[in-house]
Design a protein around this nucleic acid. Structure first.
Ligand code: MN
Ligand code: MN
Ligand code: ZN
Ligand code: ZN
Lengths: 138, 138
DNA sequence: GCCTAATAGAAAATAATTGTCAATAGAAAA
DNA sequence: TTTTCTATTGACAATTATTTTCTATTAGGC
């Protein structure tokens, strides 16, 4: 999995550094992380890492389309490794963020018809209560 | 329309000040504005207004659910007067932001089934090219 | 009109992000 | 391997964005 990360970075034309490998590994492990969460996670394993380096790498990786920003109501943006188009669900209780595959073809079509725009991208965020939090309350 | 704004603010339990009326009028006129756009617009009519006042009012109005933040990929958040649930379309060429009414019942249902979450809110952003920009290029 | 709590504005404080620069470390070439 | 060259790192400064503090003013109720 070490070589895995190395190869991944190379595929996206990103020089392989220990700092970057660390970032990728944390994103693989945790899915969606804010800058601060990412910074804290990495410092546990890599205490010398500087926050500026995190910012710089986040930008480099976004430029190469290797990672994506997810903007969520009320909280700081999260970042994730780029993968197949998908929507996000946020639990308003515990803050958990999850992926969900939805078929967005029909809603895109509806939007295109109503607006006359040519749509090429969607950002769909659903907020609610996750199954765990649902059972806990009630 | 002056009394209109006054009444609106009172409805949302917000003390009526000239600064607030100005904010509301600009939002009514322009639809979706970032903090900076709002600040600039208002200064034309109300040069003494301070940026901190804009921030404070934006927060007060969000707390009362009178306005809403719209988070859009790549650009600073916009704010709008709260209205019926609706989605947003962004033109990637000219940056225009428009409302669009979509029927989200079926996609919400799909998400709930796939995730077991209880969804109570959606933020749907569609990005593409607006009809005006479409004709200009090609 | 008078009273009181809320709000405005100026400025300082804090938080978030970006830029600078010398030292270092990838990675490609020799 | 060793050399070379450029990109990256980390410390720190500089910006930019947002929030707080404080005092004077004002809206809205009595
Ligand atoms: Mn995701
Ligand atoms: Mn809108
Ligand atoms: Zn939860
Ligand atoms: Zn356009």
């Amino acid at each position: 999995m070490d070589t895995n990360v190395t190869q991944l970075l190379k595929t996206y034309e990103l020089k392989v550094t220990p700092q970057r490998m660390c970032i990728v590994e944390e994103l693989m492990k945790n899915g969606h992380l804010s800058i601060d969460e990412l910074y804290e996670k990495i410092r546990e394993r890599f205490p010398s890492l500087s926050l500026a380096t995190v910012y710089k790498n986040i930008h480099a990786m976004m430029d190469k389309n290797f990672i994506k920003e997810v903007k969520i109501p009320n909280v700081k943006s999260k970042f994730e490794l780029t993968k197949n188009d998908h929507a996000h669900i946020i639990c308003e209780k515990c803050g958990k963020v999850e992926d969900v595959d939805v078929n967005s073809l029909s809603i895109i079509k509806e939007v295109e018809e109503k607006s006359s725009y040519k749509i090429d991208h969607t950002d769909l965020i659903f907020s609610g209560i996750c199954p765990e939090c649902l059972t806990k309350e009630s």
